[in-house]
Simulated scan of single mutants.
Amino acid sequence: MPQIAIGMPVFNNQETLARSIDSVLQQTYGDFVLIISDDGSTDGTWAICEYYARVDSRVLIFRQEANLRYMNFKFVLDQSQTEFFCWLAGDDYYSCFFLEKCISVLNHDASVVCSVPKCQFTAPAGNLSLAEGTFPIVQDEIDMRVTQYLYCPSDNTRMYGLFRSEVLRDSFPPRGFHAYDWALSAQTLCFGKHQEIDEVLIYREKTKRALYTGAVLRDERGLLKQLFPVFRMSVWLLRQKKFPRRRGVVRALIWLNLVKHMEYVSNVHPDFYERSRFFYTYLKKRL
């Protein structure tokens, strides 16, 4: 059995998928299986999947009859039986040293559950920037790790690091909701540390910030849930047995809910936000 599984949930990625798959197959560490799940693509994505499955036995492919959306990430995880696991999106790609350097960190330190390198974002205009969500979280205390993360989940690129598979299986939410990936990352920190590799080894397409409001409207039904987009995420975390409920953690959750509420209101109800900006700023400083 391979030691690592790379899960690749894809949807209409025909323009970038070959680059993503090639970056996996060209890894210097070759003891892996690549699990691709096509979430009902309507372009040429599935044909590309079939080609790579024919030419390399390490590539396993699945095609979903119904669109799974966020749960497609869980599907590829559920198909794996390896000790370590990572995700790669169909429009992202690796340096050839990604697996080799990530697994070295995990093998060296049993207290680390996620090894994630620095990441470079690319954009259609050619602009480059480093991801802000790969910083190390290595405190010994669970509540300190979770609190640090909740105050700065950022772009959550840490989700694309290499994890201990058992930790991911114990941490993945059983159903999809807005910011499920933040919930996942926060829960994994209850099991151990996240270590950063100080080298760019993964490259991601940058998601347009303007798509955030659309994602909230799509993920959350009802005005109250839309106004507080990470409320369901927060409730799910607080119900988990290993999740700490100390004052600092709860305070960080409240702060995050306020920040995402402000972001949503500023986009959807800008006039109201302008009238209430002083009040919002006051609350944010108090937290």
Rank of each mutant, 00 (worst) to 15 (best):
L99Q: 07
E100V: 00
S104W: 02
L106K: 04
N107Q: 15
D109W: 05
D109N: 15
A110V: 13
S111M: 10
V113N: 03
Q120E: 15
P124A: 00
G126I: 08
L128E: 15
L130T: 11
G133L: 09
T134V: 14
F135C: 02
F135M: 09
V138T: 14
Q139H: 11
Q139W: 00
D143K: 06
M144W: 01
V146T: 07
V146I: 12
T147W: 02
Q148R: 15
Q148N: 12
Y151H: 14
C152K: 15
C152D: 15
P153I: 03
P153K: 08
T157N: 09
R158C: 05
F163L: 09
L168D: 04
D170G: 01
S171P: 08
P174K: 07
G176N: 09
G176Q: 09
F177N: 05
H178I: 06
Y180L: 09
W182Q: 09
L184N: 04
L184Q: 05
Q187M: 12
C190Q: 07
H194Y: 02
H194M: 07
E196Q: 15
I197M: 02
V200R: 03
L201N: 03
R204C: 04
E205D: 09
K206S: 05
A210E: 15
Y212W: 14
A215Q: 14
A215S: 13
V216F: 02
R218A: 11
R218T: 08
R221P: 02
R221E: 14
R221A: 10
G222V: 07
V230Y: 05
V230W: 01
M233K: 10
V235I: 13
